[in-house]
Design a protein around this nucleic acid. Structure first.
Lengths: 252, 252
DNA sequence: CAAGCGTGTGTTAAAATACAACACACTACC
DNA sequence: GGTAGTGTGTTGTATTTTAACACACGCTTG
């Protein structure tokens, strides 16, 4: 009923940060726009969202915006990242063990992830907090020095952590990619950590939004031959397909 | 100039919380509405305001709106915890290394902490995210299994972490305290972690809000002789003073 | 069971707001 | 003097919001 729908909207808004009325209409095709408007109005009354022209945004999102360094990044290419995260979420099976990195795309993955019985390792603080909401997810954070830019941890000691752990699958993201330089990121210890995960994981899925293609960051942590699946958005340039196919990478 | 006007708008918005375009036009009669729109647009880009239909509101205002009803419900004994956190924050000197635990009181401490050059170790995810905002704080998170109830980590492996690290001071909090049973908490691995910190830290400060006195939790991790300073609130029962004095504990 | 009431919803037209495009003024720099 | 860049104003158009009314449904009450 009404209340259910309103709660659902609130949840959606929590996940996505903001939603346009148009998007909401897609989610709730069997009610009119006017009804959704009224729902938003009510949520605004309750102080849970802020209505902006064309839709609404969650209060939490606003607080983040002011939180500065980390979250500014989350604001860009949001749609692509959510798209990728949703695809990735569908690839996660119950009763497995996996590693998720600490990037912003990974945070959306954490939000989209089903609440199933899995064991997740992550080096992302935001990812961890998000996953801590899920009842059935067993969660371990890799400790270490905190990189403030992206709220992730990394440290040489992490290696010790991984010595006694195993995971089937690593779902990670890169800050940059070119065919020549592979997948790269901005921090050396993060790159080291990701290299280690490559060794421990049976499969490696890479999340890469198309805006990162053609860019280069200082530290390469993986090449094409290291990954099994590439999860990307609709703007992925077709001319790269061949190159990925050559390495038996599933692009989706 | 443009910049001046924009800053002035930002200030106004800070003071009033929100402003309609109409009101803005009154304040700036000699520029067009379009210009004011563009100014608001820019401020929005900078993440300093939120544009809403008909005008804009300051980010701070939004935080207030959500700050009131929500957080007060979430946490209990908030005032006492903030009081304790403020006291504790004053005890932290620059250029030291300290451990902070992952409790809710610790989170308030993280918020109250001055942005000075210290190295902080913590097992609290919320604490870490809070501290990540501070430019001068060097931050390390102890990894491990995440306890969802209080968003803290703990694991046997943490010991390995601490082997190569040192800190002057540990500021921790307990979930319960009695003279007979000492300081206790609800999780065994957390208790283990805190015991280890006791060994590594030169000084141990305990944050304990008075509501926890007289309660007992399953796992004791410290006794009176283990701590150096007790930070508590105004409701601390006077009859305990003597007992603490006996162990040379400074109560504040 | 019909009448009456409240709630939730949909439809429409009108109002309010925002945006895009272009034009102009002013400055700085060559 | 020309030219590029920035800031601004004007206009018309597009979009979004609101208001007002109408309908359907469930519930109570006579």
């Amino acid at each position: 009923m009404k209340r259910d729908r309103i709660e659902e909207i609130a949840e959606l808004l929590d996940k996505r940060g903001k939603l346009s009325l148009e998007q909401l209409e897609e989610f709730f095709p069997n009610v009119s726009q006017m009804t959704l408007r009224r729902d938003l109005f009510q949520l605004e009354q309750e102080g849970r969202i802020i209505r902006v022209r064309g839709g609404a945004m969650s209060v939490k999102e606003v607080q983040k915006v002011s939180g500065e360094p980390y979250t500014k990044k989350t604001a860009i290419h949001t749609d692509e990242k959510i798209e990728i995260a949703q695809k990735a979420a569908r690839l996660i099976d119950a009763n497995t063990s996996l590693f998720i990195d600490g990037g912003t795309t990974a945070m959306y993955l954490a939000k989209e992830m089903p609440d199933i019985n899995v064991h997740v390792f992550t080096n992302g603080l935001a990812v961890a907090i998000e996953l801590a909401q899920k009842k059935n997810v067993n969660l371990t954070v890799v400790g270490g020095q905190v990189l403030k830019e992206n709220l992730s941890t990394a440290s040489p000691v992490a290696k010790a952590y991984f010595d006694n752990t195993n995971f089937e699958l690593a779902i990670i993201s890169a800050s940059a990619f070119t065919i020549a330089n592979g997948f790269s990121c901005a921090s050396q210890i993060e790159a080291d950590l990701l290299k280690i995960t490559r060794k421990k994981a049976k499969f490696m899925y890479m999340m890469l939004d198309s805006s990162k293609i053609g860019k280069i960051m200082p530290y390469t942590f993986a090449h094409l031959e290291d990954i099994d699946v590439l999860i990307t958005d609709d703007n992925f340039p077709a001319e790269l397909n061949e190159e990925f196919a050559k390495h038996n990478i599933v692009v989706m």
